[in-house]
Design a protein around this nucleic acid. Structure first.
Lengths: 94, 94
DNA sequence: GCTATATTTGACATAATTTGACAAGTCAAA
DNA sequence: TTTGACTTGTCAAATTATGTCAAATATAGC
């Protein structure tokens, strides 16, 4: 899977009846940028997550978790050995 | 943990009785760079792994796996939610 | 000690990528 | 057809990655 983060913040934004423009203003970035972030063609800077959680009235930890998951995916996508690499970290090698 | 990759290739290099200079020459990069890579202060470009496995007479997949593990660690180090993020990928959400 | 060779370190230059802004575009509803 | 929301492409600036060089520091043999 991919772009968990973008899908999530789009859903949250719609639930809150907010426009991209409003979210953008809160983060002080361009509307076009969050549009791309929702679509997964760009990454949000990690530092923006607190403000984002704020305006979306969301749990900051949940957003960060999804954000990290996407980052991890970015590394192991197209890598057949990705799962094995994760297992090494989890310590259940093999 | 960290720098699994660097530790591994240093061990392999010593087992093969090779100098950094020799490994560097094979990869066509500066000796100083592999020194740093072994110590984990720099990353190797992924494209160099095949040549590296060659000169170290090592299994390319093993090196790549450790390489990926270090990359993943880089993202989740200092992140209490890192494991949770990995679980999302593995699909054992929670 | 001295010498030679291997490794490490820090500063630097350059290349590549990321980040964000802007402008022009699409689309849907009024 | 006008308006507002969103999307897309392109550009410049900022940041990060990659590699080199020279100097510093080991390390081993005499």
């Amino acid at each position: 899977m991919e772009n968990r983060f973008g899908v999530k913040i789009k859903t949250l934004r719609e639930q809150q009846h907010l426009y991209l423009r409003q979210v953008a203003a809160h983060l002080e970035i361009d509307t076009a940028l969050i549009s791309k972030i929702e679509k997964g063609v760009r990454n949000l800077k990690k530092e923006h997550i607190p403000k984002l959680a704020e305006v979306l009235n969301a749990d900051q930890e949940e957003l960060l978790t999804l954000y990290l998951a996407d980052q991890l995916d970015e590394i192991i996508k197209d890598e057949p050995l990705g799962k094995k690499a994760m297992n090494i970290i989890i310590k259940n090698s093999i």
